[in-house]
Computed example of a mutant assay.
Amino acid sequence: MTEARSSDLTARARLRLAALKLFAEHGFEATSTRAIATEAGVSHALLRHHYGSKDGLRAAVDDDVLNTFDEGLATLDASDLAALGQVTAQLFGADELRRNYLRRVLLEGGPAGIAVFHGLLDGARRHLTALRTVPMDEADARWAPYQALFLILGPMLLEPVMAPTLDTPVFAAGPLAERSASNQRFIAKGLLD
């Protein structure tokens, strides 16, 4: 378990964290509810009581992951691009467990992956709208949140193949800060401006 010591968490929270960990490591289909209950140190019946099914537990994990990002972004001045870049880098990069989960769920696709991407896209739209200082044409406005997510999610999705091309880990503090600053410049000025 990550976050707090698992003994300090409610059974419901331990189940959600165990599912997050096992779904990230093995995928949704390959993870049984019994394995989740064992990892959480609770009975299988308690998992059924709190979440009803594995699908209910996955929905709770997805909500928790998306809420973690929304809560982090809600603390900043929506018009401060540098702060937005730092927080998104921290949220998407520094939390290895959530990063691994997001990679897995987005690459697995299906309805769950689409729903998680949709949640991320809605957040990107909200924050970019708050940052926008000049009007955009319709096509640019439509694609801007996708482009922002490409910059943010790209290193996370490509981490396994990016790692051998760098001298330090992809999400180490130095490369993360450099990449975040570069992303901010791309968003603010464009790649070829």
Rank of each mutant, 00 (worst) to 15 (best):
R185T: 14
L176P: 02
A144K: 10
Q184K: 02
F171D: 06
T133N: 06
P160L: 00
L176W: 00
N183C: 07
A144I: 02
D167S: 11
F186D: 03
S182W: 14
H118N: 10
F186E: 01
N183S: 15
R185L: 06
R179E: 10
P135Q: 15
A130N: 05
W143C: 06
L131Y: 15
V134L: 09
A163H: 02
T133I: 09
R185H: 08
V170R: 01
A124M: 03
V161R: 08
A173N: 07
L153W: 10
P160I: 10
A139Y: 00
A144G: 08
A177K: 04
E159R: 06
P155W: 00
D137E: 08
Q147Y: 13
P169W: 07
L128K: 12
L153A: 02
F150P: 00
R132I: 04
L166S: 08
V134R: 05
M136R: 14
P111D: 15
F186R: 00
A173F: 01
L131V: 13
Y146K: 04
E108N: 05
A177S: 15
L157I: 15
P164H: 08
M162N: 00
L107F: 12
F150L: 12
R179Q: 09
M136W: 01
G110T: 13
T168F: 10
L107T: 07
P135M: 13
L128W: 05
A141W: 03
Y146R: 04
G110I: 05
G109R: 05
F150M: 12
G119E: 05
Q184L: 03
G113A: 09
F171A: 03
P135T: 14
M162G: 01
S182I: 11
R179K: 11
R126A: 12
A177C: 06
S180H: 11
D140K: 10
L131Q: 15
G113Q: 13
G109L: 14
V134G: 13
G119F: 00
G123H: 12
Q184I: 08
P160E: 04
N183L: 09
E159V: 07
R126V: 13
G154Y: 11
E178R: 12
V161P: 00
L176D: 00
A141K: 04
D122H: 14
I114C: 07
Y146D: 09
A181T: 12
R125S: 10
R125G: 03
L151D: 00
G119L: 02
L151E: 01
S182E: 10
Y146T: 15
D122L: 06
Q184H: 01
A173V: 11
V116I: 10
P111K: 05
V161E: 08
L131K: 07
P111I: 14
V161S: 08
M162V: 05
V170P: 10
P155L: 04
F171W: 09
A115T: 14
T129A: 15
E108H: 13
L166M: 13
L128F: 04
L153C: 03
P164Q: 07
F117S: 05
